[in-house]
Nucleic acid binder design. Structure first.
Lengths: 210, 210
DNA sequence: TACGATATTAAACAAACGTTTGATTATTAT
DNA sequence: ATAATAATCAAACGTTTGTTTAATATCGTA
């Protein structure tokens, strides 16, 4: 039928889960609906993943580890702080765009205090903040004398990078008059400038590249 | 028993709903659990609100309209753009902090495409973007020559202001070493400086007030 | 007191939920 | 070809879901 025989069932379930969880929420998506969408039998979900919640955990863990890996690679590299931040933002946004659904699932589950999942999130946040503290907050503090908490900068950074994707389902419905195709391609640049120099730093992005 | 007789049932349901929806998610919170938490009979939820979803709608609509009202009052006031933005950010963050649970419910429901609720969100987003375009983007464009889309600025602004509250349930679990009481009181200032001048504009907030 | 309206209650409803089972088919290695 | 392993399937499990109903209680007002 519609189900592509090439792709193994496990991957199809995972792909459907990301899309459905992102659009309807984890709790609002039934296992039957998920199995139908993936074109597999109902029992296959628990066969491959053990339970519905374990499936969610895998989606979260995947997104977490991917983001953390980018954080490591780009922040521990060479160059000035600004250059590091620039690289990080551009790569992270590309990653978020590629894994948009996973990100939406992760973000929607962030405030929930399910004990099974809380540990994942806490461990991830801890490591991310350690990195940001060492590579951004401390160096920046030595330059300017201020001390800013990674507990403020970390959430701020990721919130800024995700903002477009969090609101895009809505914005697309308001298309005329405000949906401008142009700004999408400049999005990473906007976030980079905003994070470094705020809304007054956006001046020099209209024409010049970099 | 534990239920305070002074407060009418309808309000108690609403209060419990905000807290439970924020901590467990809307779909994961059963009507029975909600009724028990509020100390009312199961049937009272549908008696007052019609349905579980209508209850959610009321929470969303309340938060939406409150935010929009602040946007109107502060952006259409007197002063330079920077002053307007400053006022807006400080008042909006206070509002978000007061209605933290409502905000978390709203934010978690943002990406979901339930047709019943989508219209609410779209209408709200449209009006917010109209305001931001007229009072921020257009004036700023005349000053600096650039044109930035309200479809970028609107989501960015609210994402930045909410970042702390979105991650606070997690951050509190990572307390040592990064949870610093100090930064909480400076949070509105941090967001204000970040939005206007980026991370390099944070220098002058350590000692001086304003 | 008696009335109409509002509020509260216990009980029941069908539908959907996540999960498990045991049999059957495919696939792989011997 | 045969045995072992993995994958798929229909069916059923017991709960829990949101909602409704009809009876009762509470209250302000005439």
């Amino acid at each position: 039928m519609g189900k592509q025989r090439q792709i193994p069932s496990r991957q199809r379930i995972l792909a459907s889960a990301k899309r459905l969880f992102a659009r309807q929420g984890f709790a609002s998506t039934g296992v039957r609906e998920l199995a139908d969408d993936a074109g597999v039998n109902l029992a296959m979900v628990n066969y491959f993943f053990g339970s519905k919640k374990e499936l969610l955990k895998e989606i979260l863990a995947d997104f977490f580890s991917g983001y953390l890996e980018i954080l490591r690679q780009e922040l521990q590299g060479d160059g000035s702080i600004d250059e590091k931040i620039r690289r990080l933002i551009h790569r992270a946004i590309a990653y978020i765009e590629e894994n948009q659904d996973s990100m939406l699932v992760t973000l929607a589950e962030l405030p929930h205090d399910d004990p099974d999942i809380t540990e994942y999130k806490a461990e991830w946040a801890k490591q991310a903040m350690l990195l940001i503290n060492k590579e951004i907050c401390e160096p920046l503090g030595q330059q300017t004398g201020q001390d800013i908490s990674p507990a403020a900068v970390g959430p701020l950074l990721i919130s800024m990078m995700c903002s477009r994707f969090l609101f895009s389902p809505i914005i697309e419905k308001v298309r005329p008059p405000f949906y401008q195709q142009q700004y999408l391609s400049k999005y990473p640049e906007i976030i980079e400038k905003m994070f470094l120099h705020g809304i007054h730093g956006l001046q020099d992005l209209t024409d010049a590249e970099e």
